[in-house]
Design a protein around this nucleic acid. Structure first.
Length: 207
DNA sequence: GAAATGATCGTCT
DNA sequence: GACGATCATTTCA
């Protein structure tokens, strides 16, 4: 398990940290029990003004303040009126950079995760960023939690670097298509828990 | 199997 | 007031 002494491992740009997190195990312990997920898919987000898809693109706000904190924090945000997504922050304090946890495989607490997800098939428990957050029991109140601080969350990196890593454009990032062109999405090929790729599409308003 | 669509609310402009 | 780092369901093939 990583501790505060390991924080420098995460004090790198998101594109460098993202592949490192593939195969890592994130654990969350609550009064209900413990759920751990092996990360199989991630996306990098930057805050240096070069990434229009990042929450931090327009500078620091009340919501994205955690992205500007030190590396190794949990950045939880609420979106689409009903979903919570989880990131791990990168770079030292003052720099906005984070890795979105898009999908994973439940390795501990599958029963509890299944209850939280409403009884879906195991492979679907943490497929998709909002599903992953739900399975782990991550809520907005967990925003800013230190994953390396020995609290409710803990992180364990993969012992060996994965044999192969696939990269591609990010999912669900709308805009002029510019940011989606960068291969800032990383996943473990062959993992059934990796979410299906869907190109960013601007929603059509009904009525 | 693939594509379209509603749900639902915090956040930014 | 508009839209979003999404998901489950419905609809069509």
């Amino acid at each position: 398990m990583l501790t505060g002494a390991d924080r420098p491992l995460l004090e790198a740009p998101a594109v460098e940290v993202a592949p490192t997190l593939l195969g890592a195990v994130l654990t969350h312990t609550t009064p209900d029990g413990t759920v751990a997920v092996r990360v199989t898919e991630v996306e990098a987000y930057h805050g240096d003004g070069t990434d229009p898809g990042s929450h931090a693109f327009r500078g620091r706000t009340a919501r994205n303040g955690t992205m500007f904190g030190p590396a190794g924090l949990l950045y939880a945000y609420f979106t689409y009126g009903m979903h919570t997504c989880a990131n791990i922050t990168c770079l030292p304090e003052g720099n906005a950079s984070a890795v979105l946890l898009r999908a994973g495989r439940i390795v501990v607490g599958e029963a509890l995760a299944t209850v939280r997800r409403g009884g879906v098939a195991p492979v679907r428990l943490a497929r998709g960023p909002a599903n992953l957050a739900s399975a782990l029991g991550i809520s907005l109140s967990d925003d800013g939690a230190d994953v390396l601080g020995g609290g409710a969350y803990s992180l364990e990196l993969a012992r060996a670097r994965p044999e192969s890593i696939a990269t591609g454009p990010r999912v669900g990032v709308s805009g002029d298509g510019g940011s989606a062109a960068f291969p800032w999405r990383f996943w473990l090929p062959g993992e059934p828990t990796v979410s299906a790729y869907r190109a960013a599409v601007r929603r059509v308003r009904s009525g």
